[in-house]
Amino acid sequence: MNIQVKVNGKSYQADVEPRMLLVHFLRDVAGLTGTKIGCDTSQCGSCVVLMDGVTVKSCTCLAVHANGSSITTIEGLAQDGKLHAVQEAFWNKHGLQCGYCTAGMILTVTELLQRNPKPTAEQVRQGLKGNICRCTGYQNIVRAALAAAEALGG
């Protein structure tokens, strides 16, 4: 099936099998490998991207589902070479170690702060339910989210 998906502002057109997952489309067709695959079962959140402004697990979404939509991946978050406040906060607060879950974490926190600009630590922890990190114990990710909220004026 022929689909057209806008990813980070650029349009990609491809003929894909209906069974192709969105994450495979992003990684293999669009060549954007910043989005990761960590589990097969929608548990880990490594594959989170923004689809039409909301976070989705791109391993639990078919590429055909994304036809006509606009996707933001981790590669598209920084603007004009300037890091997004959430990226900056992850860096400042040591919110990552191996980096594998980081794209999903950053995009999840980005949406969280859009919905709740001034969250409590507990609300951040609740908001990270769908993302697994095996390295950080989450604590510095929570700190990063709170620092980003501060920086964004929440």
Binding site: T55, K57, G130
Partner: peptide, 9 residues
């Protein structure tokens, strides 16, 4: 239900 991404979709 689930987590934010599950709720979104």
């Amino acid at each position: 239900i689930g987590d934010p991404q599950v709720r979104n979709r």
